[in-house]
Design a protein around this nucleic acid. Sequence first.
RNA 1: UGGGGCGUCGUCAAGCGGUAAGACACAGGAUUUUGGUUCCUGCAUUCGGAGGUUCGAAUCCUCCCGCCCCAGCCA
Length: 560
Amino acid sequence: MEQPTTPAPTDFIRDIIDEHLRTGKHAGRVATRFPPEPNGYIHIGHAKSVCLNFGLARQYNGTCNLRLDDTDPAGESMEYVESIIRDVRWLGFDWGDRLFYASDYFEKLYGFAVELIKRGEAYVCDLNADEVREHRGSFTEPGTESPYRNRSVEENLDLFARMRQGEFADGSHTLRAKIDMAAPNIVMRDPVLYRIKREPHYRTGDQWIIYPMYDFAHCLSDALENITHSICTLEFENNRPLYDWIVERLISGNRPQQIEFARLSVSYTVLSKRRLIELVQKNYVRGWDDPRMPTVSGMRRRGYTAEAIRKFCAEIGVAKNDNLIDVALLEYCVREDLNERAPRAMCILNPLKVVIDNYPENSTEQFECANHPQKPEMGTRQAPFSRVLYIERDDFLEDPPKKYNRLAPGREVRLRNSFIIKFESLVKNEKGEVVEIHCSYDPATRNAPPADGRKVQGVIHWVSAEHAVSAEVRLYDRLFTIPDPSAESEFLQYLNPDSLKVLTGCFVESSLKDAKPGAQYQFERLGYFCADEKDCQPGKPVFNRVVALRDSWAKMADKK
RNA sequence: UGGGGCGUCGUCAAGCGGUAAGACACAGGAUUUUGGUUCCUGCAUUCGGAGGUUCGAAUCCUCCCGCCCCAGCCA
């Protein structure tokens, strides 16, 4: 698979690695991993981690594993695993043959647990969840030791084996590390290492009824895979002492080192897995790949490219500051990428009929249109022109404000790629709405400037009524309108009911009747659109809005 | 409140004792058969605050203030 070229910025993680390289730690090796739990689809926040981990591996000529961190059977599934594999690949990264599952280590992890018991540093505790919590103490008070804390190694070994064999009820026993119930860091107050959970695991089925906790499984999985730099998000900083505690006891030689960075937040949206699951399960969206979702698959379906997402991840940087990235930066990265690659096309969202009175009836001519104004190598296409056209309703105003650069009574405009036309008259219906306008065209301006050098009011796009293809266009606005991060907890109340507007009665030029699903276009003056991966059908295309072109006209109108 | 982190432009983010990069956003202007693109220009005398060390501090020290994370048998 092609490895993308993303810029290699400097950041504190690279400083740490450089230092290791200098001192010879890990013998010059760099091994990272991307370890999602398969309990949902990955989103733009995961993409940051994917780009970081795989980017580091590539930059330092190392490796990056894809590991499914599936130690809690609840909510995990093969569908999620498949989506993760698909999405990381699509983002442009390759883990070679290094696809791993924490669940493949269950037997080894069990062995590590036994070893810890033998060292007298883990014990089986009969306290239930509530009792464990009570014994844990609080931020200000130390915890109290479990009455089961000082069982003999033999008893612990026996009990732990029986836990595995299914002798005890769910939640009745746990395996705990024997550390320090008075530790100021609550993570170190005899953390639970194994719990009993009779829930089928999507890979191991009912083979196990005890499952290792994250803190036990993750560091040891890293060690088993010879990871050198275990990069995770800031909320795990409190867990690092435990990570080291476990690894120091059970692993000899070079040990992985945990390094934390700030997770991504993006304005106006929500990236919490819990909340995204809720959106899908309660059908607020049409699925994980709904184009309004901040998931990788949603963005792909919406028309964002992997390159744009990678560019974004490189642009935001990696640091330890809590951050809230302006969604405008994401959209900038998408626009920048699409501007290069998206062929231009004309589309009328809201048609207004225009009759060119002095153009012969039953006549058609073809205009050759550049697919990209700055890139002749992208070729041309033919656009049929005839006497009856559709233009965008917004492109005509009977009584235009100053600065309006489009068609109006008494004015001339350029029809993009074709003639200059001049307003002649209009037709209204009984309600007083303009339903049709009549214009004349200047044959001498066929893709040429007027001979007399006169300037026209602007350039608008059009489509031949007879040849145009009807299309459905979906305008996606932001799914949320969360005003600031502190309001995020009430996320459902900020769902934007207008986040999806379906426009029917739209027309696209005939060259788009076979638009390839997934292909992006720039509809001139309207924005970037993507032929919908799922709903687009030849002959009647469905387009999703990717991002809008800057709406300068709207901005001017706002100003005055 | 105990512990762990973090505070540099509206938003990200470089900077690591030698006198505040860059990007987005924003504001002007030029070019343009997309109000797009491109291209110029402007945008932190100041780095959470107050003291101190120093010829010199965003960078070192002290105190203070603010924000985030931790009391799941989630990850």
